[in-house]
C-alpha cells in the first residue's frame, strides 16, 4: 500500500512541481506578428522576378521554370521587343498550387526567378493567390547581383551588338578575302 502511494502520488507531486518551475523559464514563443522571425536568406518562400544590373527584366521567357515546376503552376508567354530582346508577355504563378520547392530557381538560366524568405502569403480568397508579372517583378537583382545573361549570350539586343558579348570577336566580314 505504501509502495503504491509512493509510486503514484509522489510521482504526481514531483511532476506538478517541475511544471510549476517552468513558469520561471525563459519563453520560447515568438510574439508573431509583433515579433518577426529572422529568416535565412536562402529560405524558400515567395517567388519574385528580378532585374539585371542594368535594370532590365532578367526573365527571357525561356519556359524552363515552367517545365521544371512539378505542380505546373507557372505559365508564361514569350514576347520580343523590336531589338530582339525576349521577355515574358505575361508571367503567372498560381501560388495556391506552389509547393516552394525551388526547382524554378534552379532551372532559371538567367537568375531571374528567385525564392525569397517571405512566407506571409495567406489570403482569404484563393483567386488572390494568382500572381501576375506586375506582382512578381521587383526593382533589384535579388540574391545574385552581378549576372547579366545578355552580356554573355551571343544574341543581339538593344544596346549590345553582335561581337560585344563576353569573349566575342568582332563579326566576320564575309566579303573579306583575308585568312
Amino acid at each position: 500500500m505504501l509502495r503504491l502511494l509512493k509510486d503514484t502520488l509522489v510521482s504526481q507531486v514531483v511532476t506538478l512541481w517541475k511544471v510549476f518551475l517552468h513558469a520561471f523559464d525563459k519563453t520560447d514563443t515568438v510574439e508573431y506578428p509583433d515579433v518577426k522571425p529572422q529568416m535565412f536568406s536562402r529560405w524558400r518562400g515567395r517567388i519574385i522576378l528580378s532585374r539585371d544590373p542594368d535594370g532590365e527584366e532578367r526573365c527571357v521567357a525561356c519556359n524552363l521554370c515552367a517545365v521544371a515546376c512539378p505542380v505546373d503552376c507557372i505559365a508564361l508567354q514569350k514576347a520580343e521587343d523590336e531589338e530582339g530582346r525576349w521577355y515574358p508577355e505575361f508571367f503567372r504563378i498560381n501560388f495556391s498550387r506552389c509547393i516552394m520547392c525551388g526547382f524554378c530557381e534552379e532551372a532559371c538560366p538567367t537568375h531571374a526567378i528567385q525564392l525569397t524568405p517571405d512566407f506571409e502569403m495567406a489570403e482569404y480568397v484563393r483567386q488572390d493567390m494568382v500572381w501576375e508579372k506586375e506582382d512578381l517583378l521587383i526593382n533589384g537583382t535579388g540574391k545574385y547581383h552581378d549576372y547579366n545573361f545578355y552580356r554573355i549570350a551571343g544574341k543581339k539586343i538593344g544596346g549590345k551588338d553582335k561581337g560585344e558579348a563576353r569573349n566575342e570577336a568582332v563579326p566576320v566580314n564575309v566579303r573579306s578575302l583575308l585568312p
Binding site: A66, V67, D72, C73, I74, A75, L76, I93, N94, V130
Partner: peptide
C-alpha cells in the same frame, strides 16, 4: 507545363 496556371 503550366496546367494549373494557364487559365488561373
Amino acid at each position: 507545363s503550366g496546367r494549373t496556371a494557364m487559365q488561373a
